[in-house]
Design a protein around this nucleic acid. Sequence first.
DNA 1: GCCGTTTTCGGCCCGACTGTTTTCAGTCG
Length: 579
Amino acid sequence: MRGVENLAIAQALVDLADLHELGGTLPFKVRAFRSAARAIEGFGGNVAELARTERLAEVRGVGDGVARRIKELLETGKIAEAEALRAKLPPGLLDLMNLPGIGLKTAQQVWQERNITTVDELEKAAHEGRLRDLPRFGEKREEKLIAAIAAWRKRAAAPKRRPLAEAMVAAEALVAKLSVIPGVLACDYAGSLRRRSETVGDLDILVAASSEDAPRIMDAFATAPGVVELLGKGDTKTSVVLDGGMQADLRVVPRESWGAALQYFTGSKDHNVAMRTLAVKKKLKVSEYGVFDDQGAKIAGEDEAAVYEAIGLTWMPPELRENRGEIEASQKAALPVLVELSDLKGDLHMHTTETDGKSTLDDMAAAAKAAGRSYIAITDHSETLTFVRGMTRERLREQKKKIRETEQRQGIRLFAGIEADILADGTMDLADHLGELEWVVGSVHQKLQMPRDEMTKRVVRAIESGKIDCLGHPTGRQLGQREPSEMDMEVVMAALAKAGVAIELNCSPLRLDVNEHLAKMAREAGVPVVLSSDAHSVRELAYLRYGVGIARRAWLGPEHVLNTRSAEQLQAWRTERRG
DNA sequence: GCCGTTTTCGGCCCGACTGTTTTCAGTCG
Ligand SMILES: Nc1nc2c(ncn2[C@H]2C[C@H](O)[C@@H](COP(=O)(O)OP(=O)(O)OP(=O)(O)O)O2)c(=O)[nH]1
Ligand SMILES: [Mg+2]
Ligand SMILES: [Mg+2]
Ligand SMILES: [Zn+2]
């Protein structure tokens, strides 16, 4: 329920902002509500839990005022202030405002001048040509409006944000295509994808080119295969809808603005606003074209790091650019060194054809070695998962022999491990056999929807069993498909820390479990994080890259990630804990 | 409403695209 609950709170704040805007409230107050809504939406933890413990103001952008309104919403199911504003307005007006291309002014205009308050009425009026005589309206706007409403209806059903991996694959293909167009001097993706958000709203692509070449490049983009709709095209910017339903924005800037444009287009919006505000205080102006002094002279622009340095900051990894303290850290020269893919020496969760994997032990070992891993753990499912032919004691002993033989032959350290089920009562499947194994991931696969207290007890019991090395995909969430299990993560983290058990950041694209917020909690609790692919085929060994992005967003350095250590160090860590 | 080594008061980013505009407002990123 957590994701849903946070989203519902964020939506209530967006509505509150809209209602205030319609009611004529000061624009900066409206902006504050919208900013708080973004902060809540991007907050990976349990907002309701924060509210209970009076810690809402820890979220940047949420102060006492918004905290009070959130608590009211959670306690009573509504915000009285919003309801009072709503009562003064016709129902439907908010929907109207949220149509693409329609904002405050137009909604007010059609309401007051034409008595239109719903999307249906607006569509009808446009069809009948009853809008064209309004100020700043015309036939063309009527046509556009009809198309926009149709598109909005169609897209209302489709999921809006896409998982990071899906967006990355699509963006890399697009960048590859654009890069070979003559005149393209540089091309990369920016936006939430470059920041490695777990979900991505659209693709933001940046190109450096001369202004003479720009129109031809944008034409190529607008007519590329896979583009189903052109949303807009100007001198420097083109927006399209791709066949998967995702929107893509292309921005073309001169080479001398590449760094500033990359900075701008990478965001986040709140990071941009914060750093630009800082620049203003230093009598500087930052835009996508560069940094300019009070005489209008350009002092940076071609290089992204130089843009930050020009306003007294240092370059910072895109994953940190969320206005969650990175600007202050940069000012104090206290930015963390973040973990990188190349730091990962091993991969401690994967499956083979013994259970539900598609590749053999041999192939997995060879592929992992080729990918630069110096060790891996083979962790097939345990006996209770009969539908994937979970491993029995006998088969595990057989597999261990094969692992030893393969290890010799392939020249990569292999740990004979298991992904053992945490049963409903918190005991471990194959409990009496786990001591024979060299790496034990403990995971919940069945009965994911227990009451919060029961689930917490169940997981804590498994952690305290002394039989597991790492808690696998701790919340069980799957993006867009399954909400995280309810449990008290504070209690779970404390149990992990006490027992010396690691926590997994499962890098499988739809899992990314734990998420960035829980990964941060783990770091603060001193619980080592393991980045694992949970690969079910050789191809999926590459999933680690997605989890690295999430780990970096959680401000994790190599020292916080267990599988940055060598096989020997890992074994030492394990023995030390087992005492 | 939020926030803070220039502020607990007084600020709060900046530019592109569209349609209708004869100089710009509205919306969006
Ligand atoms: N300075 C400034 N930059 C903005 C603003 N809105 C958006 N940007 C920049 C930062 C964003 O990361 C970038 C791309 O905009 P998007 O709307 O695509 O946002 P983003 O990619 O961050 O998130 P998304 O996953 O697409 O919802 O443009 C703004 O109001 N001001
Ligand atoms: Mg985007
Ligand atoms: Mg965008
Ligand atoms: Zn699993």
